[in-house]
């Protein structure tokens, strides 16, 4: 058991009404590992990420980050949902980047980044601001600190969102289709930032349709379909020589229609 770092998912189950979206998902992510999750639309990839940081409560199973249970505490042989405050504290260890960016539209790029460290972590505002400016420079947006999200392109907004997640110093970053809402010419700038993070040893779980990115950057590729992990393994092997016929069919389909969702 990896008690000191990384992410550990066991037996995750989640249904919306009669529809079972996750049907028992196990996954381990070691510190510094980059895992790309691929699969057809509706396979449960996005729900998986939302369950990992407890934006959606689980029906069964558990998530540990750095050895800590997320959203639950064990008591008399069962898992009880934690208080909101405890859940929020466990969530701090995971940053999340959304498909639709979800920047706070009334705050400047800089304030989007500083809000969490100042309000939630109670850190010194001046120190946080200096750090936020460094983060903006790191994602290539040094001159855009005072702009509102509406004044930035999609690619720029997504890079601010990445900086906002990084400012909380998470041990894992979760990416939910971070480039799917972007115009094609803006995808590259976001992937470049993510590649840098991976090179610097960030632990990342990336739900994506960018097979090329997965091939270049991922250590592990996970193929999901119908709420279960069909296949997972080293990126090279899964993408080139998949064991499962379903994986092979999906990859063939995506390569024929690179724009298809």
């Amino acid at each position: 058991m990896t008690a000191e770092g990384g992410l550990r998912l066991r037996g995750l189950r989640k249904s919306f009404g009669a529809m079972a979206v996750l049907r028992g998902v196990d996954l381990d992510v070691a510190p510094g590992e980059v895992v790309c999750v691929i699969g057809p639309s509706g396979s449960g990839k996005s729900t998986l990420l939302r369950c990992v940081n407890h934006l959606e409560p689980l029906d069964a199973g558990f998530v540990q980050v750095d050895g800590l249970l997320v959203g639950y505490e064990p008591r008399d042989g069962r898992l009880h949902e934690s208080s909101e405050r405890d859940t929020a504290r466990a969530r701090l260890r995971m940053g999340m980047v959304f498909q639709q960016f979800n920047l706070f539209s009334h705050l400047s790029a800089l304030r989007n980044i500083t809000l969490g460290p100042v309000k939630v972590l109670g850190r010194d505002p001046a120190e946080v601001e200096a750090e936020a400016r460094e983060l903006l420079a790191r994602v290539g947006l040094a001159g855009h600190a005072d702009k509102l999200p509406g004044q930035l392109s999609g690619g720029q907004q997504q890079r601010v969102a990445i900086a906002r997640a990084l400012a909380m110093r998470p041990s894992v970053l979760l990416f939910d289709e971070p480039t799917s809402a972007l115009d094609p010419e803006l995808v590259g700038e976001v992937l470049a930032v993510m590649r840098d993070l991976a090179d610097q040893g960030m632990t990342m779980v990336v739900v994506t349709h960018e097979i090329g990115f997965a091939a270049d950057v991922a250590d592990t590729v996970v193929f999901m379909d119908e709420g279960v992990i069909v296949e997972s393994g080293p990126a090279d092997r899964v993408l080139r020589h998949p064991d499962s016929a379903r994986t092979a069919a999906f990859l063939a389909h995506v390569r024929r229609h690179p724009e298809a969702d």
Binding site: R91, L92, G95, Q100, N102, F104, R164, M168
Partner: peptide
Amino acid sequence: VPGGQVDAALTIGMTR
């Protein structure tokens, strides 16, 4: 106010 912004606030450790 889009619900996604509340999700984002929760992921940076805020309570509801």
